[in-house]
Design a protein around this nucleic acid. Structure first.
Length: 270
DNA sequence: ATGTCGAAGAATCTTCGA
């Protein structure tokens, strides 16, 4: 019996809760990991997500910015929230599925720092923070293959498009934060250190383009199609052995009042 | 490619973050 898991940077869960419901109605994911919820835990629209069928919810929010959440049709256990680089800024939550077809699976949901505009850690402390955050991810034992559970998933808005065909023009974005060589290298090292399989690229190799984000600033996002793959689904080898397909719900970018990110949905055969 | 969003505090705009 398969498990479906989705990741989506919702850019305010309160503003877009009806959009979440519309997506859930269409795709029926078993687990939905959200980023940029932008609200404190007490403000989270719990009643709404329970109406969608998510009886189990784990949230890590803060006032106004960042914030992550896991919504699940199955029970959740071992909820952990880690701060990185000496900050407590609601960019990570981990859960284990307590029952259902993927019982025992560990899920890490991340919102990696965007990193500001200037790709130089010496003059931009946001970029330095992003690189430090990635260093801590690489060093964290809990993200190593086999740590805790052989069945593990790492999802989220990692704010990096690591490969040439993860952006519309690798050449034009080579000095743009999200696609600089140092970030691309660092993210690749995080995946390698943890033994993670990049599910989307495993199933859809380069040079096919894959995007999950289109800027709000484009006059016509669909016509320009200057996207980036910032959102990721990584699997431990044990889960990768049974991976099904994935979908990028691009049509949601064209809905009313959209997020600038679209959901990615993975099917895992257990 | 410097445009468009969203939250929040003070106010119907400004600032910050993305």
């Amino acid at each position: 019996m398969p498990l479906t898991i989705a990741t989506w940077n919702i850019n305010s869960v309160r503003l877009r809760i009806d959009t979440v419901a519309r997506f859930v109605e269409a795709y029926r994911p078993d687990v939905l990991c959200l980023q940029e919820t932008k609200c404190m835990d007490g403000q989270f629209p719990l009643a709404d997500v329970k109406r969608m069928g998510f009886d189990h919810v784990a949230i890590h929010g803060q006032k106004g910015y960042h914030g992550v959440a896991v919504l699940s049709r199955y029970g959740l256990a071992e909820v952990d929230r880690k701060g990185f680089v000496g900050k407590q800024d609601a960019r990570h939550i981990a859960v284990s599925l307590a029952d259902g077809p993927a019982a025992g699976t560990r899920i890490h949901n991340f919102y990696v720092p965007a990193g500001g505009d200037e790709p130089d850690p010496a003059i931009n402390e946001k970029f330095a923070h992003k690189l430090g955050f990635l260093d801590e991810m690489e060093a964290w034992e809990a993200l190593r293959v086999g740590a805790g559970s052989s069945k593990a998933v790492l999802v989220g808005d990692l704010n990096i498009a690591p490969f040439e065909h993860d952006v519309w023009s690798s050449r034009q974005l080579r000095n743009v934060v999200s696609h600089t060589p140092v970030e691309r290298q660092r993210l690749t090292e995080v995946a390698k250190a943890g033994g993670w399989v990049d599910m989307m690229r495993e199933l859809t190799p380069e040079p096919e383009k894959l995007y999950t984000w289109w800027s709000y600033r484009a006059a016509d996002w669909a016509a320009a199609n200057k996207g980036r793959r910032l959102d990721h689904i990584w699997l431990s080898p044990a889960l990768a052995a049974g991976m099904g397909g994935f979908q990028i719900a691009k049509e949601t970018r064209g809905w009313d009042k959209p997020s600038d990110h679209v959901p990615v949905i993975a099917t895992l055969n257990l």
